[in-house]
Design a protein around this nucleic acid. Structure first.
Length: 335
DNA sequence: CGAATTTGACCTGCGC
DNA sequence: GCGCAGGTCAAATTCG
């Protein structure tokens, strides 16, 4: 690692720490923020705990320079520092909205988006059982009514959520999982629509939202919600993918989560509710970034689908969930 | 023809 | 209560 600098979040990210590494124009940008479910906010669950990782070393930030081979931008890794949960209306806004409103300094990036995938699924199942045999129209009405009733009766369960800012010309970044688009909405104060995707795996409730930053149209904000309950369908990688990785990274196996890697510059924002800096204080070689050649021809040619691979081995893979493989293995080795 | 996307309608939460 | 905005549904359409 040539340079590592922790900087303060600016503008709307004031509550999020960040890291800068790389030298001059050869650096790269990575920032991130987290959003935790409401239940988790009240607990002391940490950023890494959310990921199932207990210890993380500072070498986490030692990203490969190949990441920015074509980039002249400086690099910043925003880590979950001390984002205080602000119970203000602004704090309840979505991450992406905050991103689109840089003119709102000091506003919290923590969102409180609702995620009811599980509940919805359960509701649907219940509906299917109860409404079987009825006409379709009545069926739909019942479904909606029951869905509403369930929502009012039980508090919303929110999935862990975090967003990545990725500089890319393509909106939907290849991350190794298959997604089905289920909606698109215009975003207030932004000319760019927001797309909603769900993981196509039947038992997987992971969702993601993709939108372009209003302040910087070259930046795609991807917000993941939930954890994959299955390995990536494109985990089987060609040998050249492994070749792009340091030896340690070849140990990549299955992951529960993959980071969008369109690059050359990826900015991810982690947001966490803890006052301390667990991400910095407890870093261990548990995260890995890997590189994989994209199988999606739609993405641009310089896109390296960098998979999130876990160096720690299969034993960790199954448990670390969302961010188990955010950190490239070579980062862990280089430090 | 099945899967994926599009898109208008609907639902929910929140602020006023 | 009303309106707005985010999020989801599902029929229609497109794609491979």
């Amino acid at each position: 690692m040539e340079k590592r600098e922790i900087i303060k979040m600016e503008e709307n990210y004031n509550s999020i720490g960040s890291l800068t590494f790389g030298e001059g124009g050869g650096g790269y940008t990575l920032s991130g923020m987290f959003d935790l479910c409401e239940a988790e906010k009240s607990s002391s669950l940490g950023f890494m705990e959310l990921l199932g990782v207990q210890d993380i070393s500072p070498c986490l930030f030692d990203f490969p320079h190949t990441l920015t081979a074509t980039s002249s931008s400086s690099s910043t890794l925003l880590v979950p520092s001390a984002p205080t949960i602000i119970p203000t209306p602004a704090a309840r806004k979505d991450i992406s909205e905050a991103l689109n409103q840089p003119a709102t300094p000091n506003s919290s990036s923590i969102s409180s988006a609702s995620s009811e995938a599980i509940n919805e699924e359960q509701t649907k199942t219940d509906n299917q059982d109860q409404d079987e045999g009825e006409e379709e129209h009545e069926d739909h009405q019942k479904t909606k009514k029951q869905l509403k009733a369930k929502k009012t009766n039980q508090k919303r369960q929110r999935e862990p959520r975090f967003a990545f800012m990725t500089k890319s010309e393509v909106d939907h970044l290849e991350d190794g999982y298959r997604w089905r688009k289920y909606g698109q909405k215009a975003v207030k104060n932004s000319p760019f629509p927001r797309s909603y995707y769900r993981c196509t795996s039947t038992s997987c409730n992971v969702k993601k939202r993709v939108e372009r930053s209003f302040s910087d149209p070259s930046v795609v904000v991807t917000t993941y919600e939930g954890q994959h309950t299955h390995p990536s369908p494109v985990m089987a990688r060609p040998s050249h993918a492994a070749a792009a990785l340091p030896p340690a990274s070849t140990a990549c196996a299955t992951t529960n989560f993959a980071m969008p890697m369109p690059t050359p510059t990826t900015i991810s924002h982690y947001h966490h509710h803890q006052q301390n800096h667990p991400f910095l204080d407890n870093l261990t070689p548990s995260f890995n970034f890997g590189y994989q050649c994209s199988t999606n021809s739609k993405t641009n040619t310089i896109l390296h689908e960098r998979r999130l691979c876990n160096l720690a081995g299969p034993s960790l893979l199954a448990d670390h969930g969302l961010l188990q493989d955010i950190i490239p293995s070579h980062m862990l080795k280089q430090e």
